[in-house]
Nucleic acid binder design. Structure first.
Length: 263
DNA sequence: ATGGCTGGAGGATCCAGA
């Protein structure tokens, strides 16, 4: 699926890299993004299957954790050069949710933003604080004036048009005004939501719950996003969601999202 | 649905997810 003169970067919350490895390799080989950001790898560093990716041409960096969370950045034929792992601003935060690298001439940030449920409560407070820490880091990247994009699972439903039924999640951390405001501040700073830009009427989902027949009923919402710096927004050609992968055997509950840029 | 699945850890159920 590679296209001459373009750079395709994707994000996929895979919900367990060990359970998902065959599906993940299949997706990489079939869609061949030059860069793939992964979330919820749910493994410690030593359990990361780097060899399986090397066999199909991808080099990787990863930040794992026992049992849950964990992020990774894969690149086709090029080693991502790590810039930072973890977000500053909270020395007690041991979650593996942030990984930043330079690859193919762009700054790639892979995030797994906290879910924040139940709200209100300490988990929601952690989510909102994490979003402010992210904003601080994105400000610093902005000041570097490098072409940059922040890909991942933001755990924020930006607008009512980004969910099949706003009533279904009205009390959920993913669509509280405070969550949405924190996300909107990133866009207000000048970052471009690529998928939102290309689908202004909404109706595009990236997550469908395993429960209650959400997938067959198309009861989904959009929480995986790609935010682009101005230079990369100018180079944006197209974006999309690989929805069909949600319907395969042993699928993640998320579908991959991607952007294609002029190289 | 106050959780109907799912993955991981651990070795029975619990936590976490969204």
């Amino acid at each position: 699926m590679s296209q001459a003169g373009t750079l395709k970067l994707a994000s996929f919350n895979i919900n367990g890299i060990k359970a998902r490895l065959p599906r993940l390799l299949e997706w990489l080989e079939e869609t061949r993004p030059q860069v793939a950001c992964l979330q919820e790898i749910k493994t410690q560093d030593e359990g990361f299957p780097a060899e399986a990716f090397e066999k199909i041409g991808y080099k990787a960096i990863w930040h794992g954790q026992k049992g849950f969370n964990g992020v990774a950045i894969l690149a086709d034929g090029e080693q991502p050069v790590e810039v930072q792992r973890g977000l500053e601003g909270d020395p007690d935060d041991a979650h593996s949710r942030y990984l930043e690298a330079d690859v193919f001439g762009v700054r790639v940030v892979c995030i797994y933003l906290p879910n924040g449920n139940p709200q209100p409560g300490p988990k929601f407070d952690y989510k909102l604080r994490w979003m402010e820490r992210l904003r601080t880091r994105m400000d610093a990247i902005w000041a570097e004036e490098v072409p940059a994009l922040v890909l991942g699972d933001y755990n924020v439903i930006p607008h009512d048009r980004d969910i099949w039924d706003k009533r279904a999640m009205a009390d959920d951390a993913l669509m509280q005004p405070a969550s949405r405001d924190a996300y909107a501040r990133l866009l207000g700073d000048g970052w471009t939501d690529a998928i939102g830009l290309h689908h202004p009427r909404g109706g595009i989902w990236t997550f469908w719950d395993y429960q209650a027949g959400a997938w067959p009923r198309d009861h989904g919402f959009r929480i995986d996003h790609a935010l682009l710096s101005p230079e990369l927004a100018d180079r944006l050609v197209e974006s999309g969601v690989d929805k069909a992968y949600r319907g395969r055997e042993k699928a993640s509950d998320h579908a991959p999202v991607w952007v294609r840029l002029r190289a």
